[in-house]
Design a protein around this nucleic acid. Structure first.
Length: 582
RNA sequence: GCUCCGGUAGUAUAGUCCGGUCAAGUAUAGUGGCCUCUCGAGUCACGGACCCGGGUUCAAAUCCCGGCCGGAGCACCA
């Protein structure tokens, strides 16, 4: 009998007590049943009896005062009160890895634009998985459309640079425009075996027929006739738009979109020369043929791509069957958006053409070039993508999220400086002596050293003048105490539009804390270095930073205290930086 | 319209395949405290979610049915 099982009874008692302590002294039966069955699956057949026993124990436990329950738990199972720290998130395992000798993934962009955050999922997941399984990561340029999505020579190189910046080492690189003979070879094989045909129907006619599952007149011609047509496509007898090679699928396939899809078409490359191979070829493969063949030919084992390719997978599987190949593992992830960012290639290109954006690295864009300029680290992007993982649901990330990842990386390593935006003068009277202050570059990292300022009072009134930001001045009230960080405390006497006047109070930090004084940053007049900050909306903020910034170099990332993280763009007569985030 | 996905706090994610240890974990954002010569970082606490309805079951975020909502594809683009 269950009720005579003392071991079980005490297990129930333990769980009931813990449950009670976690819920204001009142334990419930349901979760305890679950817990017991989780630990002791053998009772699953006796749930009814178990419930009775649990209720019995429960009424006893629940009748105890909360304090007593707590005390018992604390004495016997103190671990209940300890909290565990979450470990770093890992990528879920890739399916069917054992089937292959080595995992091979690829990233296959069209070099018609620079890369942006929208591609980050494809790139980083593909690369990460390759690393995780000690496999290979292939870069394949899909530049088979010299007309509509025309590639441009500069983008091949920019994409390589972006990948390098992201820390994704490419093991092999292929360019599809180099591989046309290979595609031709397979096209011929498919034509010969009767699994493909050269179709001369106008697209509309073809569509009308296939939507009802009826073959077009070309479909049932003999392979030799199709091979003849193929030759005429290659030698230029057929004009652009008059013939296309189709892969036979299933005309009764429930999704009309997969029925006899087009695989190669003619492009008048005299009119639209390809940037790499010019007018050498007239017949160009379409996406499904080129990508489909290459994935097999290059030994790709896991295709990681957006879910917009779901039907393309179905289409390509027909070709794989014709060729006797096995389709690789396909993983489809959802779209990645970031609130308010332009993540459409065509909009980016158009915006640049119309001068709405200054270039591919305009801070308003979410291109990798722009993120890099703003001091967003590739590590932050990578961490974020891994945390998001490969799900099919679309995700809309917020900038705040990216910033949080980036801040975690930047905060421990960035030196601190004062930056006074919209500077106004603060005149401090009755400064009793010369102050020599050393400001730490980083509060937690003494080895980073310090910056120095000397404040010398002048004249009969013992006056010294400092730059402070207009924003701080706006919050100042007469007779209030303000702490100039690491320097001294002053009492405000008056403010107007041009500046403020104050009188020296004391130099002890404790005084400031007691007075709950605002801590503000400052720069001595005469020790300033002009600085221009490019904000994320591409507006400019002018101000002064410290002389110490003159030794900074381009690409340094620093923190302007109480302002935010910025990346140094250039240092000359002034400092020019891009704002990253708070 | 047709075909296919998906829906867990403001955002993102874990758990869903195989129902129980989930009165739902984590991160970020929010609020409050502590700490700290930044409004930063750290630290502690708090609030916040299983799309809806039905069913199966001792037990449903998880399985089944119906609905609602969102997304993708339906090119001689990739």
């Amino acid at each position: 009998m269950l009720k005579d099982n003392d071991e079980l009874r005490s297990l129930i008692r333990k769980n009931a007590l813990i449950n009670a302590v976690q819920h204001d002294g009142k334990a419930q039966a349901g979760p305890i049943v679950g817990k017991i069955l989780g630990e002791k699956a053998e009772f699953r057949t006796q749930v009814k009896e178990l419930s009775i026993l649990i209720n019995e124990v429960l009424s006893e436990v629940n009748s105890l005062p909360f304090g007593v329950q707590k005390q018992i738990v604390e004495e016997n199972w103190p671990e209940v009160f300890r909290k565990e720290k979450a470990e770093e998130k890992q990528l879920p395992a890739l399916p069917n890895v054992d089937k292959y000798k080595q995992v091979v993934t690829r990233f296959s962009p069209n070099p018609d634009c620079v890369l942006h955050l929208g591609s980050a999922r494809a790139i980083l997941l593909s690369h990460e998985y390759a690393q995780l399984y000690k496999g290979k990561f292939i870069l394949r340029f899909e530049d088979t459309d010299p007309k509509v999505k025309r590639p441009s020579l500069t983008f091949y190189e920019r994409i390589r640079e972006d990948l390098k910046w992201l820390g994704c080492k490419v093991d092999e690189e292929y360019i599809q425009s180099d591989r046309l003979p290979i595609y031709y070879d397979y096209a011929e094989r498919l034509l010969t075996s009767g699994n493909a045909y050269a179709c001369t129907c106008i697209p509309e006619t073809f569509r009308k027929k296939t939507i009802h599952g009826v073959p077009c007149p070309c479909r049932n011609l003999t392979p030799s006739e199709h091979l003849e047509r193929w030759q005429r496509m290659l030698d230029g007898t057929y004009q652009e738009g008059t013939a296309v090679v189709r892969i036979k699928t299933d005309l009764s396939h429930p999704n009309p979109a997969v029925r006899d899809w087009p695989a190669l078409r003619i492009i008048d490359t005299e009119k639209y020369p390809h940037p790499r191979v010019g007018s050498k070829y007239l017949v160009w493969p379409l996406y499904n043929l080129a990508a489909g063949l290459d994935d097999h030919l290059l030994g790709i084992t896991h295709i990681i791509r957006g879910k917009e390719h779901l039907t393309n997978g179905v289409r390509q599987e027909f070709m794989y069957r014709h060729l006797g190949w096995e389709y690789p593992q396909a993983i489809h992830y959802g779209r990645l958006k970031i609130t308010g960012a332009f993540l459409s290639k065509s909009k980016i290109i158009q915006g640049i053409k119309e001068k709405h954006f200054t270039g591919f690295d305009d801070p308003r864009l979410a291109t990798f070039a722009a993120l890099r300029k703003r001091g967003i680290t590739p590590q932050a992007i990578k961490k974020m993508i891994i945390d998001v993982g490969p799900k099919t649901a679309d995700v809309t990330l917020s900038w705040e999220n990216l910033y949080a990842y980036n801040r975690k990386i930047l905060d421990p390593q960035c030196s601190r400086y004062f930056f006074v935006a919209d500077p106004v003068q603060l005149k401090v009277k009755a400064v009793p002596k010369t102050f020599k202050v050393n400001l730490p570059m980083h509060p937690q990292q003494v080895e980073k050293g310090t910056r120095h300022h000397t404040i010398t009072p002048e004249g009969e009134e013992q006056v010294t003048v400092l730059w402070i930001t207009k924003k701080d001045m706006a919050t100042m009230k007469v007779n209030k105490v303000v702490r100039l960080m690491e320097l001294f405390n002053v009492k405000i006497e008056n403010t107007d539009t041009k500046g403020a006047e104050a009188v020296f109070m004391s130099d002890s930090y404790e005084d400031a804390r007691r007075a709950k004084a605002h801590l503000i940053h400052w720069i001595p007049v005469g020790a300033e270095f002009p600085c221009e900050v490019v904000m994320p909306d591409s507006s400019l903020i002018q101000g002064f930073t410290e002389n110490a910034c003159k030794t900074l170099k381009a690409d340094d990332t620093i923190q302007f205290e109480r302002f935010g993280f910025v990346r140094v763009e250039s240092v000359s007569e002034n400092l020019r930086v891009y704002f990253g985030h708070k």
